[in-house]
Design a binder for these strands. Structure first.
Length: 526
RNA sequence: GGGGAGGUAGCUCAGCCGGUCAGAGCAGAGGACUCAUAAUCCUUCGGUCGUGGGUUCGAGCCCCACCCUCCCCA
């Protein structure tokens, strides 16, 4: 297969398992992908951002039964009441949302499996061993322990403590073992295929130890997609779920669309599932004769008090709670700024609160407020014409130019935290610039109208740049700022502003109406 | 048992291939200013860079051992 130039910047999140309601980790991954894709859209690229839900498997089936529903009803309800609203809550602009119970996924998955079968990558065998319903995973004999306490009398998994069930059934197997060398070559030739380095090391050492063929179907229950050549089997949920990345864009249903978007540019995943995406998934694609994705990017855990956040530890912070208090923009900003994407990161309510006030309210929001206010009182809200730019203005221009370049490079490197750090140099520069130039003093001096105008126009242009650069991260606040700057009549929609054009000076025309709008980030009294 | 990541100011973290690398933000202290969301700006306090060795003209950054945390594998 020859590499084809990408027509589309295609990013995916994992599809989320619908046995429960979303938690902050889901929101985190989805928001980071949203920030990256919004930035790429503002670069003028053709972008496709996919997220969705994984709805098959024994765990969902049982959860539904416990609640007296069919699995389809259960999934429908959770999608309706929890998962779709989450996207709204955290303000995600995904292009598509796939559910694995949709027809396109059924058809596409069957087509993919048939391809695997026709190419001889699949054989029938018998599996006898332990299965964890909780993790939807087969567990090797070495990892089976006797349960204690509540699990007395049961076998449990050494991996995650979940209860195991012994199963003996006829399964179809995928010849994963044949792809060891091809995978190692892939990692070798494409160092960025699995990032960051910690995940890459782990995956490589795992593959180097050798790969076993993978049981890829189940025959003891039927909540899944039927194997096309054998209706007694349904696809193993993990294998089937991975296929969403191709079925959503037309594999088996719309070949032109598929070829346009595949391969994916980045699969965003949590580090716990990096292996499925960096080992099994590329092997399956190779087996089916398809190109592999460009990158699997594994992010870290969110830690609260040094511990991985989870419901069972009762240290969880709910996404809607953060958004309810600080707003979706702050939620998005916080996770992008405070955590090095790819590493574990500590989060806390106190930290969110502190950064909200120090960085968003005092830093950015107040800047927008003071500029609009001064243009309002000194020029009746009508942007004046700037005079000669002095060194001070040139410094502001230079800061913006370098911030744009650095931020763009950071996004390219999947490092939103660095992009925000670069952009924030503009916020700090402008606040310092205003204090130094003291336009409120200049306003009182005779014959200094032009100088006053130059200062405020410079500040307004700086805000214009910030609105564009921060729009991928904080679309609501930036829309409000865009409105405050009266930019739309002359410049058009905020989302249509191009990154490459941000630093070009003097885009806001003389006479633009600047209005004071409600605070971008009002202080939150607690 | 093997392997990986990390242990840097009170807190959260940057520090690429060894030579302004001892940093940033927040918090603390002092000052300036008043356009602004009791906001802004400046100055300042603060660390023997996990421990002990070693290599080097020179080491958070390389090597060895050890301690602690997390993860993967067995």
């Amino acid at each position: 297969m020859k590499p084809v130039p990408d027509q589309t910047f295609y990013v995916t999140t994992p599809i989320y398992y619908v046995n429960d309601a979303p938690h902050i980790g889901h929101g985190y991954t989805t928001v980071m992908g949203d920030i990256i894709t919004r930035w790429h859209r503002q670069r003028g690229e053709d972008v496709w951002y996919l997220t969705g839900t994984d709805e098959h498997g024994l765990k969902v089936l049982r959860k539904a039964e416990q609640n007296g529903m069919t699995p389809q009803e259960w999934a429908d309800r959770l999608i309706e009441t929890e998962w779709m609203p989450l996207l709204e809550t955290i303000d995600v602009a995904n292009d598509d949302f796939i559910r694995t119970t949709e027809e396109r996924h059924l058809v596409g998955s069957k087509a993919f499996w048939q391809d695997l079968y026709d190419r001889g990558a699949v054989y029938k065998g018998e599996f006898s061993g332990w299965y964890s319903v909780g993790a939807e995973e087969f567990v090797g004999d070495d990892d089976v322990l006797d349960g204690e306490g509540e699990d007395e009398g049961f076998k449990v998994s050494a991996l995650d403590g979940s209860r195991l069930e012994h199963v003996t059934e006829e399964n179809y197997f995928f010849k994963l073992s044949e792809y060891q060398q091809a995978l190692l070559d892939l990692y070798e030739q494409n160092p960025d295929f699995i990032q960051p380095a910690s995940a890459r090391n782990e995956v490589i050492s795992f593959v180097q130890r050798g790969l076993k063929d993978l049981s890829m179907s189940r025959s003891t229950f039927d909540w899944g997609i039927q194997v096309p050549w054998d209706e007694k089997h349904v696809m193993y949920v993990w294998i089937e779920a991975l296929l969403n990345y191709v079925t959503a864009i037309g594999y088996g249903t719309d070949q032109d669309a598929f070829e346009k978007r595949w391969p994916a540019s980045i699969h965003l995943v949590g580090k716990d599932i990096a292996r499925f995406h960096a080992v099994i998934w590329p092997a399956m694609l190779m087996a089916a004769g398809q190109p592999v994705p460009h990158q699997v990017f594994a992010h870290g855990w969110l830690l609260v008090g040094g511990q991985k956040m989870s419901k069972s530890k009762a240290n969880g912070i709910r996404p809607d709670e953060i958004v309810g208090t600080f707003g979706s923009d702050a939620y998005r900003y916080y996770f992008a700024r405070a955590i090095t994407f790819g590493s574990d990161g500590s989060i806390s309510w106190e930290d969110i609160h502190a950064r909200y006030h120090a960085e968003l309210a005092n830093g950015f929001g107040n800047l927008a407020s003071r500029v609009a206010s001064m243009i309002g009182s000194y020029f009746d809200g009508s942007l004046p014409a700037a005079g000669e730019l002095t060194d001070a203005e040139q410094r502001v221009v230079g800061t913006i130019e370098s911030a744009v370049a650095d931020a763009d490079a950071a996004i390219e490197a999947v490092a939103p935290q660095d992009a925000l750090a670069a952009i924030w140099r503009v916020v700090d520069e402008l606040n310092g610039y205003l204090t130094e130039q003291a336009p409120w003093k200049v306003a009182k001096e005779e014959g200094q109208r032009e100088r006053l105008a130059t200062i405020l126009v410079t500040a307004a242009e700086g805000l214009r740049a910030l609105a564009v650069l921060l729009n991928p991260v904080m679309p609501k606040a930036c829309a409000s700022l865009w409105e405050s700057l009266g930019a739309e009549p002359a410049l058009g929609n905020l989302a249509d502003q191009r990154i490459a054009d941000v630093a070009r000076w003097g885009q806001l025309p003389e006479g633009t109406t600047i209005t004071k709008v409600p605070s971008l980030f009002p202080r939150i009294e607690t």
